[in-house]
Amino acid sequence: MSKFISTKKKGQPAISTASLPDIVFMLLFFFMVTTHMRDKDQIVQVSLPSATEITKMENKAMVDFIFVGAPLDKRYGSTPRIQLNESFASIEDIQLFKDKAKENRDEAEWPLISTSLKVDRDVNMGLVTDIKQELRRIGALKVVYSTNQGVK
């Protein structure tokens, strides 16, 4: 009898959790490799338009971002505003913004710098054209109209 009782008490052995850290580390490394740091907080609402003929930006370090959209904080109204470096800006500030971005980089890399326009789909072209004209004036001619991947 005692033989039977002892086996019943044991039941199933506990699942070993020794490999759990390995599994989690694997996940961790996967995320470290496939993602990149969230760099800028947005203070304007940007829902990008979609397009199919898009190029992926390979070298993210060479891209400056200009956000355009209505402020997320409704106290600032609903007219679209320009965001540079986490603060509201005007057209005239773009020159300083680009100059500073240039200073932070090696002179040999200057021709590679591009400007990514992250513009909300409902913004009027008037504002976008003003930005483009300013970029032309200061000689920042490489522009990416940032979009989502659309379906053909």
């Binding site: 190029t55 992926k56 483009k132 990416v144």
Partner: peptide, 9 residues
């Protein structure tokens, strides 16, 4: 990843 329509002004 950032992607978009590339243009040279």
């Amino acid at each position: 990843t950032d992607a978009g329509i590339l243009r040279q002004l």
